[in-house]
Amino acid sequence: MDLLVFLYLALGMCIPGLLAVLSKNPVHAVLWVLVLIIHQAFLLYTLGSEFLAAVQIIVYAGAVLVLFLFVVYMINLRMEERWRVFVKRSSLGLLILLFFAFFFFKSLAFLTALSPHFKANLHYDLSQGTNLWWIARYLFTHYLFQFELIGVLLLVVVLGAVFLLRKLKEVEGDSL
């Protein structure tokens, strides 16, 4: 049963992923990614974290993808007329892809063979508290610094966007 659910979710992620990457229309691509995200949220739930599933849906589906859709509609993208996506930058891309494919297949064997056998560093025990409780407990102690940093990072993104989108006064005769 578990396996069936996993296979369904895996297919539900890979196929929309492929479709998104290969679709001509950016709107379709964004919508396919939405499908992917929702499946992934369920996968995260089966992996034992209802909190992350919720965050995934709220942040990704609720914010990021809506932002994407908003931008796509705002700049009014038409469909790509030509199907020339594999032409332009392919030479370098192919090289890099081959490089990675080589590493993947070379490493796949021992990566998959290696089941995680380490002793947990920050162990959690569901009998003492829910997953959310444990996450919160460590997020605000051990990972406090990173948590604050992420806040700063998002602030910087907002400020940067403000910086660029503020209309610059064009100065006459100054072409520098």
């Binding site: 994407f68 947990a120 560093n121 998002l154 907002v158 966007a161």
Partner: peptide, 28 residues
């Protein structure tokens, strides 16, 4: 997330949390 799930270690979940935030920032 799967590593965390299999080893009962919270770090993985927390990293996922950070990754979601980072992805949002990059998208922005």
């Amino acid at each position: 997330a799967s590593i965390s799930h299999y080893t009962k270690d919270v770090q993985g979940y927390i990293i996922v949390f950070f990754l979601i935030a980072l992805a949002a920032a990059e998208a922005g």
